[in-house]
Amino acid sequence: MEVRTIKVFTTVDNINLHTQVVDMSMTYGQQFGPTYLDGADVTKIKPHNSHEGKTFYVLPNDDTLRVEAFEYYHTTDPSFLGRYMSALNHTKKWKYPQVNGLTSIKWADNNCYLATALLTLQQIELKFNPPALQDAYYRARAGEAANFCALILAYCNKTVGELGDVRETMSYLFQHANLDSCKRVLNVVCKTCGQQQTTLKGVEAVMYMGTLSYEQFKKGVQIPCTCGKQATKYLVQQESPFVMMSAPPAQYELKHGTFTCASEYTGNYQCGHYKHITSKETLYCIDGALLTKSSEYKGPITDVFYKENSYTTTIK
């Protein structure tokens, strides 16, 4: 009895394709271990004539594949690729409408935090270190965002349907971005203890939790000093293409032309909904596939993004 075979390709990165001759009487799992086709788990399936010449994702289970996976995804987590594939199996079914010149995501599976993050990423200057993220990001900007969303979920250790947080998501993504040249110098002034300067680099240099107003941050924000008295913390120097200011959701007025974009969060910790506000020729609110415009805006804002380049204080 002759062994019926077909020729397929296996890959971990969709760049390096490895030619395989597979036995049609055995499952993919018996031949390769966990195997995925377009995100779908085909591990328990036997090869079919229609699979001839198709590319299958496999887990990096030998040295060659491990090197290829690390170079593309910059992670050695053995569960990463499987999590990416199972997320992709959902995100490829989502709709990605162009809204006001940006790629958004039609609401499904509690994905409003991903839509808000995706919209924000198209408006701030950011370059990702893992080629996987950078490639998928370019495709997302062009309207094909399924891979990018699935990668975000995998890097953030999230599953489809789980509630997510924009600030946490951005923080994970910033860790995989090139923020080497970003720098922030802060000064804390206390009447009792004097003053202390701190220099922050990388992710810490672009994120701040405690106030939404970048102007206020430049002037000074009140913080408790270690001595128990009130101290003032203010920005001395900022070198970065953008800054992200966050605070627990509270009524906040966004003035046209003073910011790049913002995240609105309605609801409580267990259950809520994100919308995205962007400042173009007027203010726009993007909620999944829905767009509304207004000249002014007041609502429960939790993150505001500002364009920056270089700032030095005039406070002496």
Rank of each mutant, 00 (worst) to 15 (best):
I6R: 11
F9Y: 11
T11G: 07
V12C: 10
N16A: 13
V21D: 15
V21L: 14
V22E: 06
D23R: 11
M24I: 14
M24D: 13
M26P: 08
M26K: 15
T27I: 11
Y28V: 02
Q30G: 13
F32A: 09
G33P: 10
P34V: 15
Y36N: 01
L37P: 05
A40G: 13
A40M: 13
D41G: 07
T43C: 15
K44T: 13
P47N: 07
H48E: 13
H48V: 13
N49W: 15
H51C: 04
E52G: 10
G53S: 11
K54E: 11
K54C: 14
T55S: 11
T55I: 13
Y57Q: 08
V58I: 14
L59K: 08
L59R: 07
N61H: 12
D62S: 15
D62F: 04
E68Y: 08
F70T: 12
Y73A: 03
H74K: 11
P78M: 14
F80T: 01
R83F: 05
L88W: 08
N89S: 14
T91P: 06
K92Q: 10
K93W: 07
K95R: 10
K95G: 09
Y96L: 01
Y96G: 08
Q98M: 15
Q98P: 06
V99L: 15
V99R: 12
N100W: 15
N100R: 13
G101Q: 07
L102R: 12
L102S: 06
L102P: 13
L102H: 15
S104A: 09
S104I: 02
K106P: 08
A108E: 06
A108S: 12
D109Q: 08
N111L: 08
C112R: 05
L114R: 08
A115R: 00
A115H: 04
A117E: 05
A117R: 00
L119P: 00
I124W: 09
I124H: 03
I124F: 04
E125I: 06
A132T: 09
L133C: 14
Q134F: 07
Q134A: 13
R139W: 09
R141V: 13
G143S: 04
A145L: 05
N147L: 05
A150I: 04
L151H: 00
L151M: 11
L151S: 05
A154Q: 09
Y155W: 05
T159P: 09
E162P: 07
L163Q: 07
V166A: 11
R167L: 06
E168W: 03
E168Q: 11
T169Q: 09
T169Y: 07
T169V: 15
Y172L: 15
Y172C: 12
L173V: 09
F174M: 05
A177N: 01
N178C: 11
N178L: 05
L179E: 01
L179N: 00
D180K: 10
C182T: 07
K183R: 11
V188Y: 03
C190M: 02
T192I: 10
C193L: 06
Q196D: 10
Q197F: 07
Q197C: 08
T199C: 12
T199Y: 08
L200Q: 13
G202P: 02
V203T: 06
V203P: 14
A205V: 03
A205T: 01
V206P: 04
M207C: 12
G210Y: 03
T211Y: 08
S213P: 00
Q216R: 07
F217Q: 01
V221P: 07
V221H: 13
Q222T: 12
P224G: 06
C225D: 01
T226C: 13
Q230L: 15
Q230P: 12
Y234M: 07
Y234S: 06
Q237W: 05
Q238W: 00
P241G: 00
M245S: 01
P248M: 07
P248V: 04
E253T: 15
L254T: 06
K255W: 02
G257P: 01
G257K: 00
F259N: 09
S263W: 01
S263N: 14
N268H: 09
C271T: 07
I277N: 08
K280G: 13
K280H: 04
E281C: 12
T282F: 03
D287N: 05
A289T: 10
T292R: 05
K293D: 00
S294A: 15
S295G: 11
E296P: 07
Y297E: 03
P300V: 08
T302C: 01
K307M: 11
K307E: 12
E308R: 03
T312N: 09
T313W: 09
T314K: 14
I315P: 15
K316N: 15
